[in-house]
């Protein structure tokens, strides 16, 4: 998976490929390394193929961390497969999806 982080008005994390068992830790590591000062982080799923439960695990961890830090993130450009996963697991209820 390819992770591209851009600092602008908001921090944008662009993901390309699959967010699964192997790659989810890459995302966790990449975000951990980043000094985040922005209030809002945008995770762009435009080029994401699919997400598995391992990916959901990282997103939930991020959600907890951000909530604790009084920040939030939004997920943009979900494809149908990802949307379906969010729907059946209820992640659609706890993540800001645009």
């Amino acid at each position: 998976m390819e992770i591209k982080i851009t600092h602008a008005d908001n921090l944008t994390i662009e993901l390309t490929g699959r967010l699964d068992t192997v790659t989810s830790t890459e995302l966790a590591d990449a975000v951990a390394k980043e000094t985040i000062t922005e209030k809002l982080v945008i995770i762009d799923f435009k080029n994401l193929e699919y997400i598995s439960s391992a990916g959901l695990r990282v997103l939930l961890a991020l959600k907890k961390q951000f909530t604790a830090e009084d920040r939030d993130f939004e997920i943009h450009n979900l494809n149908d497969v990802v949307k379906e996963v969010f729907n059946v697991t209820g992640f659609i209820n706890i993540l800001s999806v645009k």
Partner: peptide, 10 residues
């Protein structure tokens, strides 16, 4: 194919 990707991963 993506759905099968998720299935194999899980």
């Amino acid at each position: 194919k993506y759905e099968f990707g998720i299935i194999f991963d899980e």
